[in-house]
Design a protein around this nucleic acid. Structure first.
Lengths: 143, 143
DNA sequence: CGGTATCCGTTGCGATACTG
DNA sequence: CAGTATCGCAACGGATACCG
């Protein structure tokens, strides 16, 4: 009676916000909110390319990744992969061979994250045509 | 026959990855993938606090936000709000009064983004207890 | 093959002081 | 009240060269 689904959704949303907010405030000194702590390592210049390539091909070697990601330097690929590994998104497997062979793949966590990030990306690609801030982006897409 | 829901999901996921990947590569020079382009401005030290406060209280003035976000300087609040406004997440309304009054609220886009970010945060809060990289995080939560 | 080491420019952020 | 101006530091990313 008078209480709509939308109302209930709002209440749930606000409770969630309060919970997250409490966590966030206890971590202010670390420089990032908890969402940032997880997402930031995936939002630099190269991480998403690594994640999505690994999500697509499942297993790739260092050199294969390097070839697939146009313009990345060996240093940045190493840094990016190490960070993704440290955060539990990517698993690294080194074989004791000559020449050396190292394979990378997503963990379950990394795969789930990739799915969720692709959902998010899919959602806001629809906004590019509407929002002024992303106009330049659209122009390039159309080319 | 033999084609499971999981298989179909995987196909859809991979098609989506290809699509996003094409977009991303055409924007390499800009330094961020499209997901990053939208999310990065929300993942610095302060943006999420602004977004979540505005999602919770709906409308807040500059000074109110400043009081609610512990430790933020006027400069960083101004910078953060301006960036959020430029990206279409936040609407700014200035009243011609003395003393001046300015109100901030989320746009529909900003509200939807806040919901999605809170979903994401809710999901991975469940991983903090499992992943080594986030152990230090858990310790603080328990305090 | 799979990385490191080094240097260097840019950006982000904080602190403080000031203003229409 | 709602910001801006200025300064300074520290972290990040890029380019290049080198190594087990």
């Amino acid at each position: 009676m008078g209480v709509t689904d939308a109302d209930n959704q709002t209440v749930v949303f606000k409770e969630r916000l309060k919970k997250i907010y409490r966590y966030s405030q206890s971590h202010l000194s670390e420089g990032l909110c908890p969402t940032g702590k997880v997402l930031a390592p995936t939002l630099d210049r190269w991480s998403m390319f690594c994640l999505f390539n690994l999500a697509y091909y499942e297993t790739l070697r260092f050199g294969e990744l390097r070839k697939k990601i146009d313009g990345i330097s060996p240093r940045m690929l190493a840094v990016t992969l190490r960070r993704l590994e440290e955060h539990g998104f990517v698993a690294r497997k080194a074989y004791s061979e000559v020449p050396p062979r190292v394979e990378y793949r997503l963990t379950d966590f990394g795969l789930e994250l990739s799915r969720r990030l692709s959902d998010l990306t899919e959602w806001f690609l629809g906004y590019f045509e509407k929002l002024p801030a992303f106009e330049h982006f659209n122009e390039k897409i159309e080319k």
